[in-house]
Measured scan of single mutants.
Amino acid sequence: MSIQHFRVALIPFFAAFCLPVFAHPETLVKVKDAEDQLGARVGYIELDLNSGKILESFRPEERFPMMSTFKVLLCGAVLSRVDAGQEQLGRRIHYSQNDLVEYSPVTEKHLTDGMTVRELCSAAITMSDNTAANLLLTTIGGPKELTAFLHNMGDHVTRLDRWEPELNEAIPNDERDTTMPAAMATTLRKLLTGELLTLASRQQLIDWMEADKVAGPLLRSALPAGWFIADKSGAGERGSRGIIAALGPDGKPSRIVVIYTTGSQATMDERNRQIAEIGASLIKHW
């Protein structure tokens, strides 16, 4: 067993022997301040990774656009098919120029040779490549099948209805392509620590998230040296922004954090800054 596999296998073990965790309302004060600064709703939840206990939450059962955070769930569904012998990570998928959609920095470079399922998941999570996500959605049967996968996990809230990039439209009061912070946090925890996926697939999923290259201005910008984070960000229309993450000190994750916002007129930089400040408060009061 590799060191990384050992780390993920012992996530519940280490967490069980940690000192009790206590909620700190100071972080919620910052979440509410972010709402004021952005002029928009902000949803927040913080779960203990081992027990699933909610440590703090704000608007945990209000719907927010998922945006690209759905790509972690998508690759979880792909990995479940791999575990069941219905898919192979090494299978190569070929596609054409007509398949390319807006923001496809990886797939646009491989029109000639195609990409493997493993490479597509890596591109979808680490670079948020939209064509990679659409190609992977095709392998599982489309958005409705991802929703069905989530329902089978016990998540009857999260739903995907459309493809990239239309799913980022974020129309107010439109339930399409949305989740709730509580539902997303619980589902992410199941994917990373539950028995739904094999140990190898859980490790692969967290490795992809740990290698995320496009979430630097968010929670990662607030992390002290030595902290662990595996995350996936999302951005959408109407001032929408979000991030889902597993993080913790001492090089291992111990909490799940989900943050979503929508309806702001603020710039992307300002949305990023507010999420980073929430992260800084979380870490300060850990």
Rank of each mutant, 00 (worst) to 15 (best):
K232P: 13
Q86G: 10
D129S: 11
Y103C: 01
E270C: 10
Y260S: 00
P224F: 12
E175G: 00
A222T: 11
L28G: 07
K109F: 13
A222W: 07
M209I: 05
S254R: 05
A211S: 08
E35W: 04
R59L: 02
N50L: 08
M268N: 13
G114I: 14
F70D: 04
Q88R: 11
A245W: 14
G226K: 10
P181G: 11
T262L: 11
G154D: 10
M66V: 08
E102C: 12
D161H: 02
L137P: 07
Q88D: 12
T186F: 08
A222M: 14
H94A: 09
I243S: 09
H285A: 04
R162G: 12
K252D: 15
T158C: 12
A211D: 03
D212Q: 14
L38G: 13
E145F: 10
E102A: 11
E62C: 15
L191D: 06
N50R: 05
F70Y: 09
G194F: 03
V117E: 09
L74Q: 09
A132Y: 15
F64Q: 08
V31T: 04
A200N: 03
R202V: 14
S233Y: 10
G114C: 08
P253I: 05
T107F: 07
N168T: 12
W286A: 06
L282R: 05
M127Q: 03
A280I: 00
R273L: 13
L192G: 09
R202P: 07
Q274P: 03
L74T: 09
A124K: 13
E26W: 00
Q86D: 07
E175A: 01
S51L: 12
Q274C: 04
H156N: 01
A124H: 07
I244T: 12
E61N: 11
L120Q: 00
V257H: 01
D174I: 11
A235P: 08
D212W: 15
D83H: 03
R118E: 14
V82A: 13
M153V: 14
N152E: 04
K232E: 14
L191V: 02
A266V: 15
L199M: 05
E164Y: 13
T131I: 13
A185T: 05
T178I: 14
G154V: 02
S221P: 04
H285I: 07
S201H: 11
G216K: 00
S96M: 02
G154N: 10
A230K: 00
G251D: 01
T69F: 04
Q97S: 09
P217D: 02
K30M: 15
L167M: 14
S128Y: 01
A276F: 07
W208I: 04
I54M: 06
L146H: 05
T69S: 03
H110M: 01
K71M: 01
E35H: 04
F70M: 04
L199F: 01
M67T: 10
I256H: 02
R255H: 03
M127N: 01
W208V: 06
H285N: 12
Y44K: 05
K30I: 11
T267F: 09
D207S: 08
Q97W: 05
G226Y: 12
G236A: 13
I125L: 14
G76D: 07
R59N: 00
L197K: 12
R63Q: 05
H24N: 08
A245V: 06
I243L: 12
S68Y: 02
S264I: 05
I45Y: 13
G76S: 09
D99T: 13
E87Q: 15
G263S: 06
S128E: 01
P181W: 10
E195K: 13
M153H: 11
L73D: 11
E102R: 07
G226S: 06
S51P: 04
F58Q: 12
V42C: 00
G239D: 08
P65M: 15
D250T: 03
D269H: 01
E46M: 12
K144G: 08
R159V: 10
R241S: 07
Q37N: 08
T179F: 01
K213T: 04
Y260F: 01
S122F: 02
K284H: 02
Q97E: 05
G251K: 12
S104L: 02
R59C: 12
I275P: 13
A148D: 01
A185R: 03
E119C: 14
K213W: 03
E166S: 11
H24G: 09
Q265W: 12
A246R: 06
A34C: 01
V157Q: 00
T116M: 10
L218K: 07
D83Y: 00
K252A: 01
G251F: 04
S221V: 01
A185D: 06
L219E: 14
D231S: 04
V42F: 00
D83N: 09
A230S: 07
I243A: 13
P165R: 04
H24R: 11
Q204R: 10
A123N: 00
H156I: 05
I283T: 15
R273M: 11
Q37T: 12
D269K: 00
V29M: 15
T112I: 14
L205I: 06
E164A: 14
T158Q: 06
T262P: 10
E119V: 13
M268W: 05
R92P: 09
G251M: 06
V42I: 00
M66P: 09
S57C: 01
V29L: 09
L136Y: 12
A225C: 03
E62Q: 13
N272K: 02
S122M: 00
M67E: 07
L282A: 07
V157K: 05
Q37F: 06
P253C: 15
L196K: 05
L136V: 04
L100A: 14
R176V: 02
K213P: 03
K190R: 15
V78T: 06
A77F: 08
D207W: 03
S122P: 13
R189P: 11
S221T: 11
W227S: 02
Y103L: 00
T187M: 10
W208D: 07
S122V: 15
I244Q: 14
D99A: 13
L137F: 14
T262S: 13
W208R: 06
L218Q: 02
N168E: 09
L150H: 12
R255C: 07
I283G: 13
G194Q: 01
E164S: 15
V257N: 01
L73G: 08
A148S: 09
N152S: 13
H24A: 09
I259K: 01
D174N: 05
I275S: 13
Q204D: 05
L205P: 08
K30S: 14
V214K: 02
F149V: 10
T107R: 01
S68I: 00
G226L: 05
D155R: 13
V117A: 08
V82G: 07
K190C: 13
E166Y: 14
V257L: 07
L188G: 07
E62V: 11
K190M: 15
G216A: 04
D212C: 11
W227G: 01
V101Y: 03
A215F: 15
E164R: 14
V257R: 02
T158A: 05
S80Q: 07
G43F: 12
Y103K: 00
T147L: 11
L136N: 13
A235Q: 10
G279R: 06
A222N: 13
T178L: 12
Q265K: 11
F58A: 12
R159E: 13
D113Q: 03
R238D: 04
I278L: 12
K109Y: 13
Y44N: 11
E164F: 15
F228D: 02
T107V: 02
E175M: 06
A211H: 01
G236T: 07
F228G: 13
G114H: 06
Q88P: 12
S281L: 14
L135R: 05
N272C: 11
A211Y: 01
I54E: 06
V257F: 07
W208E: 05
S68W: 05
A200P: 05
